[in-house]
Amino acid sequence: MSRTFRLLNSTLSQFILIFFAILFLIPLYLLLRNSLMTELEITAWDWVFWPEVTQWQNYPELFADPFVPMLNGFKNSAIIATVTVVVQISLSCMAGYALARVPFKYSNIVLWFVLITFLVPLQAMFVPQFVLIAKIGWVNTWQGLIVPGVFNAFNTFMFRQYFLSFPADLEDAGKVDGLNYFGIFWRLALPNAWPIIIALGSLTLVNSWNAFLWPLVIGQGREWWTIQVNISTFLTAQVVVLHSAFAAAFLGALPVLVLFFVLQRYIAQGITRSGIKG
């Protein structure tokens, strides 16, 4: 291959990448743009790239709207996501360590049990799950929204894979110091597991924040709506107030976008681990 050809080739590749990058950024740009325009500007026939006067007041107005409980939606989502992440990651991490490290005769059977549950397609199970949750009276309750989500077979398995490669020397050192397995986990394994905790924790947080079907089914009362259900009601409303809808959507996306941006290295590692290793 000649040098010019190669140069041409890499320039072309770069152009293709830039083209796709623009394509991928357009939706986010439109989201931000529309959230800062007036209703009239959004629906105008003439295209504008950016509003002449940015309508920052779209945001405070959004919270003043008595028909859509935005602030409450944020509060609900924040509570659900935080509790889910803290409890789910603690439980999965602990269980994963035990499955990887604590000697127990039937450990393998327990691992198989966890793996089988991982094979159950959870979204498709929402009707049977709803029927049970309704039976125990957990519709429109915090526990109904949160508790079914804190037991996670996948994360448990991921933590197990991670702790399998935990150095045996450290473990032995812990035993010499008279620690039992929980002590080793607490004092030695946990402090070394931060990268994976951050990775799986942020993925769990994003999934919980973005969840739609379960909160829709369980948090039926207006006071139980999460931010996603709130945004969805803009779409199903009789009259769609466009600028408010976009402002709500942008605010709903912002926390997870920032989180992803800041932690992307960890998250990418977490996703990587989930794939093929082990």
Binding site: F20, P27, L28, N210, I231, L242, F246, G252
Partner: peptide, 20 residues
């Protein structure tokens, strides 16, 4: 840039797709 949309929820993406 290609990874960021992974953070967006289906609801918000639906809003952008349908309304914008």
């Amino acid at each position: 840039i290609f990874f960021m949309p992974t953070a967006i929820s289906y609801v918000i993406a639906a809003m952008i797709w349908r309304m914008a």
